[in-house]
Simulated scan of single mutants.
Amino acid sequence: MTEGMYPLGRLTPSLVRQEPLFAGAAAPVGTLFVLGDAGGYAAAAVAGRSLVVGRNAPDVHVAIGGEDGYVSREHVLLRCVEHGTGTRWVVRNGGKLPIRLPDTAPLLRAHEAPLPVGYTPLYIQGSQLHVVEVLVSDGHRHRGAVRPDTSTGNLRLPITRREWLVLVAMFSAVLAREDQALPLSWNETGKVLNTVPGQSGWNDRKAEAVVDGVRHRLTAAGIERLTRETAPAEALKTNLARVLVDTGTLLPEDLTILNTGIDPNPAGLMNR
């Protein structure tokens, strides 16, 4: 085993929920965690270090899409490079299919982009959607003791601003507490999004693709009844709405965005 690199077992919890320990202790700043279909890898930030993700299970660090012939044998390359006085991690597409990241253009073959600190899902759409979970540690795994003056915590689930906008539109009737409120259809959701100031080009397929990404990521995090294999198709939206509302991920005040195009919480989605 290379020094500073450790395998993560198949029972490792989703990186959405918990940052794993690194060699039995909290990870140093910049440590990279990667989870695929059956475990993953952790690597300290050392310039020149790289991890490979792909279908060729015996020869890659993290395996995905083992039975999906559209996923390349070495589809994702994660490299640690020098940056300023330190280092940063970069993701590069070595496969044929694009790699989608939240809030940025898809990475095409041979394209690369820096990874931000924190959690980033990588989506590869082959014969099915594959999710590679990536986490760059900020070095603050443990929380301090709760005191009377401690800020209120939250159970809010990690979603991007783009995902949040689509979800607010789709569940607008639910958030408005209308009688017998139901989620909007994909077509209705696209139409609402196109009326939001600063938004255009939405349609049913784009809205559905965003929400499918959220469902798959939350399922990987251990949240149940969000896939067609675990719940009736007609219940998926309702189940997702319940999860998002119960965790405070969506709030009634979020409806403001639909009329103004302005985020009611400019300090950031996580500060609720």
Rank of each mutant, 00 (worst) to 15 (best):
P7D: 08
V16R: 12
A176F: 03
T150Q: 04
G95W: 03
T260Q: 10
H61Q: 11
G24Y: 03
R109W: 05
A38Q: 08
E19L: 02
L108C: 12
V62Y: 00
S50D: 04
L77V: 15
V131I: 12
Q180K: 15
E178Q: 14
D263G: 09
T85P: 09
G261V: 00
P158G: 03
G65D: 05
I99W: 02
S172E: 12
L107Q: 09
G144P: 08
P114N: 05
A63E: 08
L226P: 01
A25V: 11
W186D: 12
G39S: 10
A169S: 14
V71Y: 00
E67C: 08
L193N: 09
D68G: 11
H83Y: 12
G40Y: 04
V166G: 10
N194R: 09
A113C: 13
K237W: 01
G248M: 11
P183K: 01
G213L: 01
G65L: 04
R147C: 13
A173M: 13
N239T: 01
N203T: 04
A38C: 06
T85D: 15
L182Q: 14
S72W: 00
H142S: 14
T238E: 07
H140E: 12
P98K: 04
A220H: 10
V81Q: 05
R88M: 07
V132L: 04
L15W: 02
I99N: 09
E133F: 03
T2K: 14
V131Y: 04
L167D: 10
T189W: 03
L157A: 10
A45L: 07
N154K: 03
K237C: 01
R228C: 00
P20D: 04
R242F: 10
P183G: 03
H216Q: 13
R162H: 12
R88T: 09
A113K: 13
S50V: 04
K206G: 08
A267C: 11
W202K: 04
L258G: 06
L32S: 02
G39P: 08
G190W: 00
K206M: 11
E188I: 00
L251Q: 08
G40S: 09
V117K: 03
A241P: 09
D103H: 00
V192Q: 11
L269Q: 06
G201E: 13
Q199F: 00
L184N: 10
Y70C: 06
L167V: 09
R242H: 14
G268S: 13
E188K: 11
T195F: 06
N194T: 07
K206A: 15
T104C: 15
